[in-house]
Simulated scan of single mutants.
Amino acid sequence: MRVERLSRDKIRFFLSLDDLMERGIEKEDMWRDIPKVHELFNDMMDQAYQELGFEIAGPVAVEVFALPAQGMVVVVTRGRTPSPSDLDDLDGDDMYELEVTLEESDQVIFQFADFEHLVQTAHTLQRIMGDGGKVFAYQGQYYLVLDTDMETETLKQAIAILTEFAEPSTITEHVLAEYGKTIWESQAVGEIVRYFS
Rank of each mutant, 00 (worst) to 15 (best):
Q70A: 09
A166P: 00
A57M: 08
V135Y: 11
L15D: 01
R5L: 12
M30K: 01
Y179G: 01
I109T: 06
L6S: 05
T170H: 13
L6I: 13
M45A: 07
R127N: 13
G133D: 02
G79D: 12
T77M: 14
R2P: 00
G58Y: 07
W184H: 12
E97R: 08
D43H: 03
Y143D: 07
E104H: 08
R194M: 09
D93V: 07
Y138P: 00
R12E: 15
F136A: 04
R80A: 14
I128N: 07
E39Y: 09
T163W: 07
L146G: 01
R32D: 15
E99T: 13
E26T: 05
A48M: 06
L15V: 04
L40Q: 05
V135L: 14
D46Q: 05
V193D: 12
T101G: 09
F14P: 00
F112T: 00
P84N: 05
T148W: 15
Q157V: 03
E28I: 05
V75D: 11
E153K: 10
D86Y: 00
A113V: 08
E97L: 11
D29Q: 06
Y179W: 14
E164F: 10
P68K: 15
A122H: 05
K36N: 10
F136L: 02
I161W: 11
G133M: 05
T170P: 01
T101E: 15
E167V: 04
S85V: 00
L40A: 11
M21P: 00
I128S: 08
V76G: 04
T152S: 11
A48V: 09
M95S: 06
G130W: 15
I11F: 06
R2T: 09
L98H: 01
V119L: 11
F41T: 03
A122C: 04
I161G: 02
Q187E: 15
Q111G: 06
A137W: 10
A177M: 09
E28C: 01
T77F: 07
E164A: 02
I161Y: 14
L15E: 00
R127G: 12
V62H: 02
E164G: 04
F65A: 10
E97Y: 04
P35K: 14
E173M: 04
E4S: 15
F165D: 04
L125R: 08
V3E: 06
A48F: 09
I128Q: 10
R80D: 07
A57V: 05
A188R: 09
T182P: 01
F110K: 05
E55P: 00
M45R: 03
D147T: 09
D93F: 09
F115D: 02
A137Y: 07
V74T: 05
D93Y: 12
F54R: 02
T170R: 10
V62E: 08
V108E: 06
V62L: 11
P68G: 12
M72Q: 07
P82E: 06
R194H: 14
T152I: 15
V135F: 15
V62P: 00
F196E: 06
V64Q: 03
F13E: 08
A166Q: 01
W184V: 06
K134E: 15
H117C: 03
R8E: 15
D86H: 02
